[in-house]
Amino acid sequence: MIYFKLPFNEKLYTTDNDPVKSSVSFHSFDGFIQQNFNGNCIEVTPERFENIKLTNLSLSKDKSQFNAETKDEYLHKLNHVIEFIKQNNLPKLVLSRRKIFRDFKNINLNESFKNLCKSYPNAFRYIFINGENSWIGAFSEVLGKFNKTTHEFETMSLAGTLPVPESWSEKEIQEQKPVSSYIREVLEKYAGKVNMSETYDHISGSIKHLRTDFKVKIRPEDLESIIKELHPTPAVCGIPKDFCIESIQRFEKSPRELYAGYIKIETEETVQYFVNLRCARLYQNAVHLFVGGGITAQSDPEKEWRETELKSEAVLKNLVIS
């Protein structure tokens, strides 16, 4: 079962299990995992959701052998990654880690999801329970939005992370620029004119990112090709893409699974794609939080660690646990 809310929309949706149609699907970072939810998207009233009990017992137990990296281990790795970036003259490489939380007896899934929805009204928010593969998350990066009537396609470049009160440094500015350049180059293959906004602050809870918006008109038959070229974006991978994907597999301790993959939502009017960041895999006896950041030659390992800790709070602070 899945429950979700679209950005800036407080209506709650699920799917009606019609086997003929699949309106919601989750795609892993590496493309090898796809989690489909059959049926059309239908609205769920708040009253009905109050009567639905998402119990901890419906989750599987964590039998994985994954252990979270310590701060020292992560800082040591980051020093190697920064040297690797300098040696290969990379604009940026995105590195992620798992933060594993086990100090609880029970998670109130209904209340946790409602907290996440309140905290991030401008995000795609979801929870799905599927036994061994159950996740919760909220993030506002749009990989793509296609209007079936006008054939307009929208996407965004979102990179760089700081607490809201802090000022942007050259590191964050230079981290976001190649993401925008990459997206523009992809869109120019499919559209004669690319409309590109100024770069501005995108607020997400207590943190902010640098954001640039794009809009083009495309042929409907090109939609999936564009998504395949955009994913994974430099914001979750790095540049050049193929080399960075190989490097991620080399440096990261555990697989990303659905983290940094994308979510596809199709309705009668639109097809929307969201990047799956600020998310966690749920177990009866553990929560695996996935966090990461863009590493450049100018990165400070200590600051990068603090950034991932800050990102992990997006989900962790909203969990109702006992």
Rank of each mutant, 00 (worst) to 15 (best):
L6T: 06
E10N: 15
T15E: 15
D18E: 09
P19S: 12
S23C: 06
F29H: 02
D30G: 02
E43I: 13
D62C: 07
D62R: 07
K63N: 10
S64I: 03
A68V: 00
A68C: 09
E69Y: 10
T70A: 11
T70W: 13
Y74V: 04
N79E: 14
V81R: 11
K86N: 11
N88A: 06
N89F: 10
L93S: 03
R97T: 01
R98T: 14
R102M: 09
I107F: 00
L109N: 08
F124K: 03
F124E: 07
N133E: 12
W135A: 04
F139E: 03
L143G: 07
F146H: 01
T150A: 06
H151R: 10
H151Q: 09
E152R: 08
F153T: 07
F153D: 13
S157V: 01
L158W: 04
G160F: 04
T161V: 02
S167M: 09
K177M: 14
L187T: 00
Y190W: 14
Y190E: 12
K193M: 09
V194S: 04
V194D: 04
N195T: 05
S204V: 15
S204L: 14
S206Y: 11
I207W: 01
L210D: 03
T212M: 11
K215Q: 06
V216W: 12
I218C: 11
S225C: 11
K228M: 15
P234E: 02
A235N: 08
A235S: 13
K241P: 00
K241L: 02
C244H: 14
I245K: 12
Q249E: 13
E252D: 10
K253I: 02
P255T: 10
Y259G: 03
Y259K: 07
Y259N: 11
A260S: 13
I265S: 02
Q272R: 15
L277N: 06
R278W: 14
L282M: 05
L289Q: 01
V291A: 04
I295S: 09
A297H: 07
D300Q: 14
D300A: 11
P301T: 12
R306L: 15
V315D: 14
K317N: 06
L319Y: 06
